[in-house]
Design a protein around this nucleic acid. Structure first.
Lengths: 344, 344
DNA sequence: CTCGTTACTGTAACCGGTTACAGCATCACC
DNA sequence: GGTGATGCTGTAACCGGTTACAGTAACGAG
């Protein structure tokens, strides 16, 4: 591997000083046209590319920021990254991604390694109650927290309206006349899962419907756990007439299990999910779900972060909540009186 | 935002030289225990974290590498990143991710910005025939190409056995007695899509089955295009008895459309996909698909890259092909004689 | 007591950029 | 001719680490 030329070598070839090279590259300060041409020719011929680390060192700007994600599966992850990446690149920033953090200690180590590499941080905390998320990020950079349960006073945060979304899904089921509702919960330590369960319970309470603890099925946001929960539900003596799954992946698994037991959706059991993943509308019947604009969520987080980076710490902390809206499809609506059909 | 302390400030507080701080941090060279304790105490009390950019500058190692991805949707992306990230972190490396590149010129710009930021590169080229992928990466770092159609002589490459996978899916359908087969193709400029189509055509040819051009439906790897193709197939005068979709997302869409038209799967139309996404087994019926261990693919690519980084350019170029294996489920198998049921 | 060896620590030069400041022409104008 | 303004360019100090090399102290052997 041949070493790339440095700015000093380019300077000597072009017969100018390093300052001039820098000025040409960054369009700063006056440079005579003939000089600029000479410099550009030298750069071109030598295949010179500025060394980012060196540049960051002196400018104190890396033009990139870090993303810390917990163990996230499925569509959510890619949508989020897509939203962030597009927004970041629009402003000339790059992304350092570190995913699949379950251990907070390990996350802390990664955080250290990020010092001097990033101008800001988007952190998605698993946000369980026991292990408190690291409220202080020891780099001197702005941080935006994503869907952390307790919005830190120190950092900006953006959360999904999990509770409201779960509420509207549950109320939708109640409005359809269901009184015996089950919920397939998410991982107990996950704050999104927790809030969705909260919304579910609240809606039941507000409508004076008792919450049978036996109808709170465990799950882990994966398809298989939904399948198991669905099987368990099918086996129940006093079967619920409606099921709310804390996410769509589990709803899919549940749907498969219920179908396998010969139950009809929604006649025998109505089913609603959360996330509105792309395939939700292509299931048979279409899956009623709660929609969150994930890519937009990522874009918003990015814009917040960029504002904080540009603006310094002067601006007050923002705490934003992005809405989650119910999308009704065939898995809940009575087919004899469909609210919406299965057509996408 | 308070500025983090530099190594020189720590040195002055601890009453030692910068060299000693560095030695303590990197476990290099001899340091007296009492000195080490003093240094560690100073580091702790000042909250000192080494500045990565500065370190990279002098060591010529960034301990991170870049990933360039084209516009990729769905499960594939997250699985790939997960595989890469876990393997990378195991070796202490970080990930710079840049996704959603459709424009090669833009990708080139990103590439430049990566100079001095990464020790290596994993590049997934959209790999269309017309726009040749950038064969030369102007950074002096090793590159691993992912699923590029023409494995470059300059770089290592890892490809998915798209052709073989498509072949076995098609042969499976032929073995079941189907003679009129349709295919829902992927984006024409995508090399994966191209190879899958190739495998399909080859299998038909080898079995002496004519390929009706009217049965090659366009698609773009998204669910909706599969739905449209499915609707078109249902409307055909001389309907095919089997459909092979170039990926599972389109198969899901197609399944939905066929179902919507009252066609039974697999009795009226058999259906197979590609990728074996997690929900494939939870559809009703379970979707026959071609399985690729995506996370493992990412891990392999990472290991290759790390080997190249550690080993220098001495080793010969590797060109690896990861297998794609057929998974048969209810969407193709005759239910009166099921090869495998719908149970996950 | 002298010398060599070992164990530890400090000095200063790098890595490759940016930029404050100074220097030098050139030109207009008095 | 002097004077100041203007436009362009170069010098050198920094950013925050690493590390070759030199220096010092202590200790054992001869």
């Amino acid at each position: 591997m041949k070493r790339n030329p440095s700015i000093r070598q380019v300077a000597s070839v072009a017969g100018v000083s390093v300052a001039t090279i820098s000025r040409v590259l960054n369009d700063k300060g006056p440079v005579r046209d003939s000089t600029r041409d000479r410099v550009l020719a030298a750069i071109e011929s030598m295949g010179y590319v500025p060394h980012s680390a060196a540049r960051s060192l002196s400018t104190r700007r890396t033009m990139s920021f870090g993303i810390l994600l917990p163990e996230v599966h499925g569509e959510f992850f890619s949508e989020l990254i897509r939203g962030i990446d597009l927004a970041a690149r629009r402003s000339g920033y790059h992304l350092l991604v570190s995913s699949s953090h379950s251990d907070p200690a390990e996350a802390q180590a990664v955080l250290h390694a990020l010092h001097g590499r990033v101008d800001g941080l988007i952190v998605m905390t698993p946000g369980n109650g026991k292990v408190s998320p690291p409220t202080r990020f020891p780099l001197g950079v702005p941080v935006v927290e994503l869907s952390s349960r307790i919005p830190s006073k120190l950092n900006d945060s953006i959360r999904i309206d999990n509770r409201g979304g779960a509420r509207s899904a549950t109320e939708h089921l109640l409005d359809l006349g269901h009184r015996r509702l089950a919920m397939i919960c998410g991982p107990p330590e996950n704050s999104d899962a927790h809030d969705r369960q909260l919304g579910f319970a609240e809606a039941l309470f507000d409508h004076g419907v008792a919450l049978d603890p036996a109808l709170l099925l465990p799950g882990d946001f994966r398809e298989l756990s939904g399948f198991r929960a669905g099987s368990a539900i099918a086996d129940l003596q006093h079967r619920p007439t409606a099921v709310f799954a804390a996410n769509d992946a589990m709803a899919v698994g549940c749907l498969s299990a219920l179908r396998g037991r010969g139950l009809r959706i929604p006649e025998d059991v109505a089913l609603a999910g959360f996330d509105d993943i792309p395939i939700a509308r292509f299931l048979t019947p279409g899956l009623t779900s709660v929609r969150v604009a994930i890519a937009e969520l990522g874009a918003r987080a990015t814009e917040r972060l960029l504002a904080a980076i540009e603006g310094g710490s002067t601006s007050p902390r923002h705490h934003e909540i992005v809405p989650a809206t119910l999308v009704v499809r065939g898995s809940t609506s009575n087919p004899t009186n469909p609210l919406r059909g299965n057509e996408p």
